[in-house]
Every structure is written in structure tokens, then in C-alpha cells.
Design a binder for these strands. Structure first.
Lengths: 193, 193
DNA sequence: ACTGCACACCCTAACGATCGTTAGGGTCGA
DNA sequence: TCGACCCTAACGATCGTTAGGGTGTGCAGT
């Protein structure tokens, strides 16, 4: 059942992504719902609610992607899957991902701290993959895991600006993986599919 | 001579970076200038002016960085210098770079098209470096220059979120370069300083 | 040296519009 | 009869912008 409430959060994500949190008025949201603006307050208690829920959904989706990566896989394989997962989340929920990445600073109060914490936790999980890859000898021993994670996270955090639904996201993720792990100079080790 | 006008654009960049364009009011700007809000209109004719000027300054700075790269250098060296240059601009003009990267969509009218065009031109210049590197045999022959440029531009476009003045930006740029060109798996070819 | 005047700069006060939010009441199906 | 849903009407606040008037400083002409 698609409730009216969830439809509202969907529209909120869409408009916040397109015009920004401060650039989207309650009136805009009401118009998108085909309703008078006062009527929205039967569903929410403030505009901030909608921002928070979009952010929380983003955090959930990104973490869930990492959760699906098998523990026993080699670190480099985990990194490849993490890249796929992240880009897939962005492609599948472009609005949510866009808001998650660039509107978090408009969250207020402790909800903001909560989301910032989720972000940091996610980054730490990525960084751990590189640490693991280096310590297990899959990646070069002089690898700085902080710099490596920074590079990868930067790359994918920007993805919302150019990713489009329908493109082959998985293949793009693997291309990124190949460039990052094997480099642009040397030849890639051939991979299966 | 530091005019009152240029002080205003500086403050605008600072506030737009910190709170966003729509999150910054004319009143905020006036307060930062120690002045009544109506007084600002002796210097500008609209709030959009300030946004546009910040964006134009950003475009100018990024392009100027690339202009300083010698034509006769090897393509890989140009890429390294481009990375340095970009991160240096971000570090030196953090506010301007931040606004340039994330507030451009609030520009209206043809000024928006102008800035978007400058952005695209910049991206094309980066992409040309990878094309050159591949065609001249410095980079792997199967390199997709579009993907490579996307990866690098994504990485540096995110830089404003974590770069801090005072950090050794040049060294960080070179580390990124090493990871990207030599990869995370293989060993880097030793380089001079 | 004195005057006059342009100019940069700032003020107060208000404008119409729009903002997020609230109050109170109405309609409909389960 | 309850709950989900929507309405109209208004609230106080804040928004970007304008109008009109007031300083002071420095430079021109005499």
C-alpha cells in the first residue's frame, strides 16, 4: 500500500534534490501533492521532518549496500563490490542520494549529529577495506588507507551529478575499480566478466 | 586598495559557502558588513550579482591553474600538475571553490549557461590530458579517457569538503596522482621529489 | 586658501511578496 | 464513530528590494 505519507517523502526527496532544501517551499511540496499547503501538516510536524527522513533513508540504503558484501571475500573483491553497491544506490535512488550528499548541512539539532555520525561510520567502513587489503598483502604495502579511502569516497560522492538511471552502473563501477586498483599506466589484470 | 565592494563579494563567498545561497539572507550579508541591509544596494543591484561574481571568480581561478601548465611537458606530468593546481585552488580559495561546486544551480538566466559552459570547458581540458596520455603511449592503450576524467574530476570536485588550509596540498595531490596512475595494487615507479 | 560639488557610503522606513506554521472545521469510507 | 484526509483563512516573521535623505572626504576651479 502506497500511503499518502510516503508519497510526500518521495516528492520531498525529488524537490529537495532538484531545487535544494531552502529552495523548496512548503507551497511547492503542496502543489506537487495537489493539495493546499496547510494540509501537509496532517502528515508532518515540520519541513525539517522531510529532510531528516530523506537523509535517514539515504544512510540506511548506503549501509545496507555494504552489509550485503560477504565477509569471506578477498579485500580487493570487497572493494569492487563496495564500489558497485555505492553507485547502484546512487543510480537507484538518485534523489535520495543527492539530498544525502549535499543537503545534510541544513539539518538542525541532534538529528544532524546523528546523520553526520552515520556518514562517518560509512566512511570508516570503506577505509577498513583498504586497510584490510594492504595488511593482507593484496594492495601495495605502502598504501595510505586514509588517502585511498578519501580518493574513492570523493569519486563516488560526486556520482550523483552525472549518474543516470538506465546506464550500466555495474560496468562503470568495475571500470572505476580497474582504474583505481590497476592504475592508468599499467595493464589491467584480465578479469572475468 | 581594498574597496568596500570587494569586501562584500568576499563576505558573500564566505556566507554562501557556509550556509548556501538560499540559506544566506541579505540581512546576513549586511550584518557581516556591519551595515543596514538596504545599504548593500549601493554596491549591487541584486543578490544574484554576488552569486554570479563568486562563480565567475571560481571559473577564472580553475582555468588559470591549467593555463600555467607547460605545453611541452609529458601528458602524465601535465596530469600531475593539473591535480596539484586544482587542489591548490580549492585550498587557497576554499569559499569560492565551495560555492563554485555546489551553488551553481541557483544561478538564473544566461549567467547560468555561461558558468555551466565554463565548467564543461574545464572538464574537457582535463579529459584532453588523458586522451593525450593514451595516444602518446604514456597511459594504457585501452584507457577510456571519459571514464578516467570522470574519476579524477569527481575526486577533486569533492575536495572542498575535506581540504583544509595549511595541510600540505601539493603532497596530497601527488599521492592522488600516484594512486591513480600507478594503481593501488602494483608498486609505484619511483619518482624524483 | 576657500568654495563647491561629485562621489562613495550609510541611514531609516517601508513596500509587497512569500515563508513555515496553526486553528478550526468539513468530508468521506471503514 | 473513528481516523485519514483535505479545506479556508489567517498568523507573525522574514524575504529581497526600493525610495529618499544624510553624512563625510577629496578634488576641481578660482
Amino acid at each position: 500500500m502506497t500511503t499518502r505519507r510516503s508519497e510526500l517523502t518521495r516528492q520531498a526527496a525529488r524537490l529537495f534534490a532538484a531545487k535544494g532544501y531552502h529552495g523548496t517551499s512548503i507551497g511547492d511540496l503542496a502543489e506537487a501533492m495537489g493539495v493546499q499547503k496547510g494540509s501537509l501538516y496532517a502528515h508532518i510536524s515540520s519541513k525539517q521532518d522531510l529532510l531528516y527522513e530523506t537523509m535517514a533513508e539515504g544512510a540506511r540504503a548506503f549501509h545496507a549496500g555494504l552489509d550485503a558484501i560477504p565477509d569471506e571475500a578477498p579485500a580487493t573483491e570487497k572493494i569492487r563490490l563496495a564500489l558497485r553497491s555505492h553507485l547502484q544506490v546512487v543510480a537507484d535512488q538518485l534523489d535520495v542520494a543527492t539530498v544525502f550528499v549535499q543537503e545534510w548541512r541544513y539539518l538542525e539539532g541532534e538529528r544532524r549529529e546523528e546523520i553526520v555520525g552515520e556518514r562517518r561510520r560509512y566512511e570508516e567502513r570503506i577505509r577498513a577495506l583498504f586497510r584490510e587489503g594492504r595488511d593482507l598483502g593484496e594492495l601495495r604495502t605502502d598504501l595510505d588507507d586514509a588517502t585511498a579511502a578519501l580518493l574513492v569516497l570523493s569519486a563516488v560522492n560526486w556520482a550523483y551529478t552525472w549518474l543516470q538511471r538506465g546506464r550500466d552502473t555495474v560496468e562503470l563501477a568495475d571500470r572505476f575499480y580497474s582504474l583505481l586498483v590497476d592504475g592508468m599506466r599499467g595493464y589491467a589484470t584480465p578479469r572475468t566478466s
